[in-house]
Amino acid sequence: MPDFSTDEEKTPFRDVTHYNNFYEFGTGKEDPSRYAGEMVVDPWSVTVEGECDRPGTYSIDDLVKPLDYEERIYRLRCVEAWSMVIPWIGIPLADLIKRFEPNSRAKYVYFETLQDPEHMRGQRSVFSTIDWPYREGLRMDEAMNELSFMAFGLYGKALPKQNGAPMRLVVPWKYGFKSIKSIVRIRFQETQPETSWNMIAPQEYGFYSNVNPEVDHPRWSQKRERRLPSSLLSTNWIDTRKFNGYGEQVAHLYKGMDLKKYY
């Protein structure tokens, strides 16, 4: 089996778990680590529905149990122009999806994050423009790509709540917000799903959101990124690579597509 892991220097565990975005707990980078403890992840079940032969409600144990974990050390490129290298633990998304037996009408797969304002303070904010729950989606061939990964852990440990416990997506060639956290619903559908950031600002965040240095975010350049941890003495700029450096695995998915139009 090919090894998809990078040998770049990993971002320390402390930074991965204490500096990230999870707006369900606030918009600050420390808010997730501070407040995600309030989220209830046990028991946890995932509703699988739509165009598939095995819909139903699966407990997280059912989803996790019969499978062999792998470690994948992936680059994560945030749309905000910083990046990390994270060792995830999990399974190929394709293996999980196959168990639900999607049918021929399943052109897209849609994911949804838990909605629980009582335990997720960001969802209680009256000034938030996100229409909860947080939604994401992939085209079926993207979801079945060998790189798409469902993570249950990082750094050899169970996924911390702030990083999307108990189960989150990791799509390393797309901007980080596509890698939806704390998933409670998976739906196979024929039409392109609505996705949260695209709903808020369609001119800034497209459905595809592939990492692409040639297409700037309207408010900032995407040509470079700060590899974290950075420091004041060396900001650690690196050039952003198309598809976050995973072009060999995924470029064929977009053959013939104008990536400036389908950003």
Partner: peptide, 15 residues
């Protein structure tokens, strides 16, 4: 905070 390394993993942005 800057000298004490308390500005997090992206200190320039925070500063």
């Amino acid at each position: 905070d800057a000298f004490g390394g308390r500005l997090g993993p992206d200190p320039g942005e925070r500063l």
